[in-house]
């Protein structure tokens, strides 16, 4: 199985829960968004409070949590996006 190193960015409440703004992790390149989220929850159990109200952004495009494979490439940027409150 191919693995890729991706950069995960945490914003707002997710940054407070993990104590991190960013980290590099290695994951299978064809992982689904839901499996990737579960992987992040395993690394940071406090993230579980966001489970039902979070989406990811992959290469700066929104991806809801689901079974569709992501086709990640080395160096990709993945962001954890809690509910928005701009404006």
């Amino acid at each position: 199985m191919n693995t890729e190193q991706v950069s995960v960015l945490y914003f707002a409440k997710s940054a407070e829960l993990t104590g991190l703004k960013a980290e590099n992790i290695t994951v299978p390149s064809n992982i689904s968004s839901l499996r990737l989220w579960q992987h992040l929850e395993t690394r940071h159990p406090r993230l579980s409070v966001l489970r039902d109200q979070v989406v990811l952004a992959v290469r700066q495009e929104y991806v809801p949590l689901g079974e569709q494979p992501l086709t990640l490439r080395d160096g990709d940027e993945v962001a954890v996006i809690p509910p928005l409150s701009g404006g």
């Binding site: 109200q53 928005l84 409150s85």
Partner: peptide
């Protein structure tokens, strides 16, 4: 408190 816009589709507010 982190706020949530009611317009945000994946929030629950």
């Amino acid at each position: 408190c982190w706020k949530e816009n009611k317009e945000c589709l994946w929030g629950d507010t």
